[in-house]
Write a protein that binds this DNA or RNA. Structure first.
Lengths: 167, 167
DNA sequence: GATGAAAGTTAACAGCGCAAACATACCGGG
DNA sequence: CCCGGTATGTTTGCGCTGTTAACTTTCATC
């Protein structure tokens, strides 16, 4: 699979496969197509990972853990723009949001599941990227998991108080 | 400043400045140093933008709007890992979190301001990236702003209900 | 006017994505 | 058995990239 520090280039991939630099073009139209294929596989892995997590909080923890364990793959999946709505990546991402929405609908039956799913997704996605990009310390996985739980708890319990200023 | 679709390369920057390809090396050690400098400037702009936003929700809207209006700069600021804690980018990012924390401390006086600041930041950061990378539709700015407000409202009011399953 | 730093120059290198033309292996139908 | 097509791989080459090295120009200061 994808290692951590390795440079991701068509040539590097080809060399690692013990094949000439341009051989990948027999299988993928261009680099973006290869990335899309790898990303799609990554979305499947992420989906399995999330399916194995029990409870909303652990869903978030699993999402961030996946990002930090396979940073290159996660960047491939999310880190570059793919405006085409038919892109398998966008499709796979939508499916993940649907899954999160189902979990949320059972956890918070009275809430707007769609909006809450988007928000929850964005929350853990942001946490993942902030850790990946060094804006939050990502050294200790347990510490990261704690930060995810604390963040989710904080933002979910904040609403119980009355905000001081108008929104 | 940084235009939208332009390729960001040292050579392109140099050419645009009407100067030879290697001239930038007289001013910056390498490409990363140039990016760091541009990113730092971007953080200052973002800080001003956020300071001009009234209320927590509009803070989030301003953050995402900034990201979508200046995507290349935003990617420069956040989109690549900088593990060095002394990096000006990391410093500037920390300062922004401090600012958000102050706003939050006055909005939700009884909450854990630090945790809530991290969570709120991650939420809008995730929204920004999901829009930037095409995982959420970013066509209409007003629609995006609405999604930001809806997301923040949804996640903040969800806690008022009792969760169905244990978290 | 000499000196030295600051800034810009050209030339060159390895690596990149990608295209074109060419080679090889396999496999079913005459 | 041969023929032809499909899948897969090759070499070569183009223009781009970041980066280094060596050389030049500009200009303030002693």
């Amino acid at each position: 699979m994808l290692e951590a520090g390795e440079p991701f280039s068509l040539r590097a991939v080809a060399k690692r496969a013990g094949v000439s630099a341009t051989a990948p073009y027999r299988h993928y139209a261009d680099k973006d197509a290869l990335e899309s294929a790898l990303a799609t596989e990554g979305f499947r892995d992420l989906g399995e990972r999330l399916a194995g997590a029990g409870g909303l909080a652990e869903l978030g923890v699993a999402y961030v853990a996946f990002a930090l364990e396979r940073p290159a793959l996660f960047q491939l999946m999310f880190g570059n723009p793919c405006d085409d709505a038919d892109d398998p990546r966008v499709r796979a991402a939508t499916e993940i949001r649907r899954f999160v929405k189902r979990v949320i609908a059972t956890t918070y039956p009275e809430a707007d599941a769609a909006a809450l799913a988007t928000a929850g997704w964005a929350l853990v996605h942001g946490l993942a990227f902030l850790h990946l990009d060094g804006k939050l310390p990502a050294g200790d996985p347990a510490e990261v998991a704690d930060r995810v739980r604390t963040s989710m708890a904080a933002i979910l319990t904040a609403g119980r108080e009355s905000p001081a200023g108008g929104g």
